[in-house]
Design a protein around this nucleic acid. Sequence first.
DNA 1: CCAACAGTGTAACTTTGTTGACAGATTTTT
DNA 2: AAAAATCTGTCAACAAAGTTACACTGTTGG
Lengths: 231, 231
Amino acid sequence: MIDKREILAANPLLSGLPADVVEELMAVSVLKQLSDGECVYAQGDDGDGLFGVVQGRIRLSNSSRDGKELLVMLVEPGDWIGEVSLLDGLPRSLDAFAMGDCAVLFLPSARFNALLKSKPELYQYFIPMLCRKLRLALSYVEGVALFPLAARLAQRILELLRFYGVEDDKPGVLINVHLPQEDLAKMLGVSRQAISRELKRLEADGTIALAYGQLRVMNTVALQDELDRYV
Amino acid sequence: MIDKREILAANPLLSGLPADVVEELMAVSVLKQLSDGECVYAQGDDGDGLFGVVQGRIRLSNSSRDGKELLVMLVEPGDWIGEVSLLDGLPRSLDAFAMGDCAVLFLPSARFNALLKSKPELYQYFIPMLCRKLRLALSYVEGVALFPLAARLAQRILELLRFYGVEDDKPGVLINVHLPQEDLAKMLGVSRQAISRELKRLEADGTIALAYGQLRVMNTVALQDELDRYV
DNA sequence: CCAACAGTGTAACTTTGTTGACAGATTTTT
DNA sequence: AAAAATCTGTCAACAAAGTTACACTGTTGG
């Protein structure tokens, strides 16, 4: 058995929670190891619990019967997932898979419900989370209905930049996550070829620089301008 | 001054709330009349308050710089709108307009915040609302990324049917809301012509019957089948 | 170091949906 | 009842993106 306390001390998962709730979570949660590609939960499942990402990355996605996939979001250590099904009692609406080896903190739904019942003031911790996800989802609907692909791609690159951008010795800002064009395409709901074409266009502009599975933004302003033409 | 108490007694807006909160709302909220097309709030505004729809219909939408519009949802009497900006403190992400003459109950943000501060257990009343909207938004992103127009249209008609469907003396189920093809197109983010074509196809099948600004579903199963080919 | 694999660029062709235009139908207003 | 406004059906030209196919380039692991 791994020492949860040690691992979680340095993790933002529990920050902001009252001390007694943290103690409670320590007592009733389970640390689970997941290997690459393992399923955390699947679309249609009942909500069996809440998951906090401790290590690695979780991929939230959604697939159609004919095999097409939509990549809704990448979830990083420090974020909780699966709260919606616990809060509204409805089945999972997304698939969640481990990308690479992961560790998650699992809080079974019975424990979750008991905790909420004993401390209804905890409801408010979920409000910012739900608001953020709702706004994000709305901005995606908006984008896909109102903007051409070029603008949506710019929007998405800027988002990735805020999240994964790191300055290094080279010029520009590196998006420090392995993200093949295939995945970028699945995020935007278009074909890989369409993404390749647009990225090449941006590279020719000098707006970005491309490498194998990586992307470097050279001109943030140009991306913002592309987006502002429509927003 | 109109008597709020009388008007609201028959309205589902306040049902489910504790009696003391209802009293508080009665004391500090204002009943506002809106005429056709009047703006409730606009994208980018600060959240000035919470609105409860009492009479009429509110249109939540989103426009791009070049004039294209996305119709996110129609809000009916009994529903609250504008809670997200109050809960997370960020600007409005949608436009809200009155469709026809409306009456709304307005709770200014200062009052809202004071109420939440004095009764933090009220946070939990917003949870189901946010969950519902989040799931709906996700299903739209999913639809537009994974399904062809025909399936998305079927999905949307079924949704309208659940909400506005009424049985009458004629065969089939009438969708009892004035909804021109133009608006249906704006809901799905496509052109009016594309909607016209698809509706004609469904009419030729005998799946639906068309009238001027109205729609009657003759075969619910066929619509569900169209959707199930992809879900 | 080289084989296997994952990722990328490009092109021809097809499908889907847009745009603009207009005639006809239905409803509302005067 | 006539006029105005709204709504619908359809067409042709066009644009965007999907699909299929294949060569090529990096990366990883034995």
